[in-house]
Write a protein that binds this DNA or RNA. Structure first.
Lengths: 100, 100
DNA sequence: ATAGAATATCAATGTATATTGATATTATTA
DNA sequence: TAATAATATCAATATACATTGATATTCTAT
């Protein structure tokens, strides 16, 4: 499924979207977060303990991932549980194969 | 084919390699270059004319892509023809699916 | 109501790297 | 061998964004 990446309007838009996706997942900590969330949903404190990162940094990366709808979250008391959005992640990975 | 991205040594190495790959292809112009090279091998001047970029900038991006062995090149007179390395690009895309 | 736990936000800083302009290199042709 | 075309390299600048430290918010329990 190849694409005229630089010619028609649709392909241009899809390329930009793919670039945005790639920029987000090309950050090592974010890729790790996505990876560990495939196994199991986790609260923020579990994530930063697992990855050895600061709380605010993890919060920031989670926000980026959530804004792009690669993950979602729900509140449970004082905790916030994050979990994968598998449909969207799959969608973007398969869009990638139009260009690479 | 899921992975313990943060646990064993092999997975850690593969994750770093995937991050390197993603950083390279998450640059819009480089992704475009890869995309247009899927159709047809091209010399540098054809690439920068197609993308509307400066010669030296394209040369730089081509070097990055070549260093990571996503593309290769050969000389033809004064021109340098660049072409895709499909095996390596496929390899990295499929490695990505271990983490996303 | 108040205190503590979990998370989010914000401003400031650091860092990586894309881009630019100038110049060097290499090969061809006159 | 001189001139031109195509490409590569290099130093300087610009820009995007990860990280940090401090503080704000939200929820629960006393």
């Amino acid at each position: 499924m190849k694409s005229n990446c630089c010619e028609n309007k649709k392909a241009k838009g899809e390329l930009k979207e793919t670039v945005d996706f790639l920029k987000i997942v090309s950050e090592e900590n974010r890729l790790k977060i996505l990876c560990i969330l495939r196994k199991k949903e986790l609260c923020v404190c579990e994530i930063w303990e697992l990855l050895g990162l600061s709380q605010n940094l993890v919060s920031h990366h989670l926000k980026v991932l959530k804004n792009f709808e690669l993950i979602d979250s729900r509140k449970e008391g004082t905790k916030v549980i994050y979990f994968l959005n598998p449909e969207n992640t799959k969608k973007h990975v398969s869009l990638l194969s139009k260009f690479i």
